[in-house]
Design a protein around this nucleic acid. Structure first.
Lengths: 219, 219
DNA sequence: CGAAATCTTGACATGAGTCAAACAGCGTGG
DNA sequence: CCACGCTGTTTGACTCATGTCAAGATTTCG
């Protein structure tokens, strides 16, 4: 995010940010609360979700180091639109309205970077809308797992990619716009077929290509 | 978008943009083409849609005067993610990569404005994801009609709000992630109940409150 | 080791997609 | 100016994916 800035500039920026940390399960900020801070994840994982009128939680983003989230009155956000909850221990930097504007004034490149990030998120969200509207649960789940593997995965010793995240069936249901039961069914089938493997706090993709085929609705 | 700038600054900006126009049905830019321009709608209406793997068109945004769209390599967009098609005769200003950066350099406020817009679109898209995942077709359609009335509606002489847009059942299906048949069924019912009224090239919301109740899933 | 939470699996209900046929606007050409 | 045909809409009958409810298995943690 701040790549390409000199050491002393970074120190200047750092002084204006507050470093905070949360434990697994804590909420970093809550949907509907007045939006006053931007956050930059330093370490750990978190999920951002919205609560639908019917009470279901829909996960709109998974956050890791380097990700920006939160909201500012300045940017037309009256209140936080999502609740962000720590999935592991999380450290993040918090920045206020005025400090953000200052930094943007001093370092225009940073503004462009933020715009770039936001644009990418928009593209992501729209692709989610499209998939949600046209794909089946299995296709959506395959796409989600591939994305997770891409962003959070590490090579597993048994082969394939390991996603070490404490995601419950309910979380996965929230990401696919489905239910824990449906997710469980689909994953059981895949496990039987050897496409994936999963425990309580992790998931492994054994055959990415099969998953990709499923996600592309070629089956 | 450029509110608050002096006359001569506007002239300077204007010189770097190309003014273009399209007829109803024309594509302003096509999904998958290299992204090289940003556009600002001057007059007319257009729809932005993505084509799902199964061939269905999902409308992700309706554009009117003042709306920004398109994409730039600079912002991390390799290719346009959507096709934008004119719903009426459309005039828009086109701006290239370098010019955009120049303007941002000269007028930082504009950058903030763009970021603000993008943030709003992101919030919109995420709210769409949430609704898509949890609401029924009727609820989604009600929400879409209310949004259209809000953005494009004008008071109708018969009472209620008139949306003068050439939207086919297929377009509405694209916006609700559904099918023309389902949309037709729901709208027939509402017409019978006097909640809305519709012809080929227009739709009128007669009882916004009933629609709002439906959208909020209170029925 | 036991209770609480989570996951799995089954049986069932239903919203909404698909296919198909009848219908209505609307422009075109005789 | 009217009839024809094209295109989009409406309505019906049927099917299927997926949500719901419920019971049993498994894991976690106090």
């Amino acid at each position: 995010m701040f790549a390409g800035l000199a050491e002393e500039q970074l120190v200047g920026i750092d002084r204006r940010m507050t470093s905070l940390s949360w434990a697994e399960g804590d909420a970093l900020h809550v949907e509907g609360t007045p939006a006053e801070h931007l956050y930059l994840v330093a370490t750990g994982r978190a999920k951002a979700y919205r609560t639908a009128p019917n009470g279901q939680e829909v996960v709109v983003e998974l956050l890791g180091p380097g990700d920006l989230f939160g909201g500012l009155r300045t940017l037309g956000q009256e209140a936080y639109a999502e609740t962000v909850e720590a999935l592991t221990t999380v450290c993040a930097l918090r920045i206020g309205d005025d400090a953000f504007r200052q930094i943007l004034g001093e370092h225009p490149e940073v503004g462009l970077r933020v715009l770039e990030d936001t644009t990418a998120l928009l593209a992501q969200a729209r692709s989610d809308v499209t998939r949600q509207s046209t794909a089946t649960v299995a296709e959506r789940l395959a796409a989600v797992l591939l994305r997770l593997a891409e962003k959070f995965g590490e090579p597993a010793r048994e082969g394939g990619t390991l996603i070490e995240l404490p995601l419950s069936r309910a979380d996965l249901a929230g990401m696919t716009g489905s239910t824990p039961e449906s997710v469980s069914r689909v994953m059981s089938r895949w496990r039987k077929d050897g496409v994936i493997d999963a425990g309580r706090r992790w998931t492994a993709v054994r055959e990415p290509r099969r998953l990709a085929e499923i996600a592309a609705a070629e089956a």
